[in-house]
């Protein structure tokens, strides 16, 4: 917090400064919908972390199987015992949604990390180094922008779906679904291009600022200028883009699974939507509830993105 101390000789006092991040957080806290979104994301993280304790029923032992687990309780409408009802197969929708939230978190964060790494590396080098490097990187970016990425994601997803031999990697006792991880990589590779162009534009603007010139005149290296001056200044922009990337990553994984191109060994929200799609006329709750949760999650990320963008650039709000 601000503390003021007086200089005895001059009587002049200087307040300790507040960082841009603290200012941004202060503004974000006042942003109601942004805070609401953040609350929902925190709830999602808590649910994912504690899914085994929250869900009343365990996950399916074999994700590929359709064995009814709860005989006699198939196709039940929502009740106290089954808050989201049960499917025609006899699975508890509520439990499955809770268990699947782990994968949602996994998809969101891994896809965003990969996408943003590509974004930063391409945007920063193209913008800062300029000339030939910029030419080459921007042509590659354009190729990725004009590709019909929707179709290509499906093609690659299908190729890898057929090729995967082992369903899970076990790393330190944690099972990582191979198919889903591959889908995350495929989705990420097709998501960075637009972001990279935005970051490049920002870098081009920053490159001309006098403090970069000043830094150069004091003997700073290109690497130093990129990491110490340019990167921190594009970071706010990158964070906004990252939250929006999170929203789209959730959505893309959902539709890939919904179309049946997802990882056959993991039950994600998209997969739940796909399984119950044919029984929509009878067990509508098996479709509506996962859909609603998916909608709320995407909404939450978008609200946070909006809130952050307003907090970082208050002038853009009007």
């Amino acid at each position: 917090m601000a503390d003021t101390s007086k200089n005895k000789e001059s009587g002049f006092s200087m307040k300790r400064g507040v960082s841009q991040w603290a200012v941004t957080w202060r503004r974000f806290k006042k942003h109601k919908s942004g805070m609401f979104g953040l609350g929902m994301i925190i709830a999602l993280l808590v649910i994912a972390a504690l899914h085994n304790y929250i869900a009343p029923y365990p996950p399916r032992p074999l994700p590929g199987s359709f064995t009814p687990l709860y005989e006699g309780e198939a196709g039940m409408p929502p009740s106290l015992k089954h808050p989201f009802g049960t499917t025609v197969m006899g699975t508890d929708v509520f439990s499955e949604v809770i268990h699947a939230s782990v994968y949602t978190v996994y998809v969101t964060f891994l896809a965003t990390v990969i996408t943003m790494l590509l974004t930063i590396v391409v945007g920063l080098t193209a913008g800062y180094l300029g000339r030939h490097v910029d030419e080459v990187l921007m042509r590659i970016t354009e190729v990725f922008l004009v590709f019909p990425s929707t179709l290509l994601i499906l093609v690659f997803a299908r190729i890898y779906q057929l090729k995967v031999s082992e369903p899970f990697w076990y790393i330190g006792g944690i099972s990582i679904p191979v198919g889903l991880t591959i889908i995350i990589f495929i989705v990420s590779i097709f998501s960075w291009a637009g972001n990279a162009r935005i970051v490049r534009g920002e870098v081009l603007r920053l490159k001309e600022t006098e403090y970069i010139q000043a830094s150069k005149s004091l003997g700073a290296s290109s690497r130093w200028i990129m990491l110490r001056h340019i990167l921190p200044n594009v970071l706010p922009q990158v964070i906004v883009l990252a939250t929006l990337t999170m929203a789209s990553a959730v959505l893309v994984e959902a539709w890939v699974s919904f179309l049946g191109f997802g990882d056959p060994n993991t039950i994600t929200w998209g997969r739940l939507l796909q399984e119950s799609f044919n029984d929509l006329s009878t067990t509508w709750w098996a479709e509506i509830f996962p859909g609603l949760v998916l909608f709320l999650t995407v909404l939450a990320f978008n609200l946070v993105g909006d809130g952050l963008s307003d907090a970082i650039n208050p002038r853009l709000r009007e």
Partner: peptide, 13 residues
């Protein structure tokens, strides 16, 4: 003036 505290301040101040 007051460099001991000024080093904790941001340019806009």
């Amino acid at each position: 003036p007051d460099p001991e505290n000024a080093i904790h301040s941001y340019p806009h101040q």
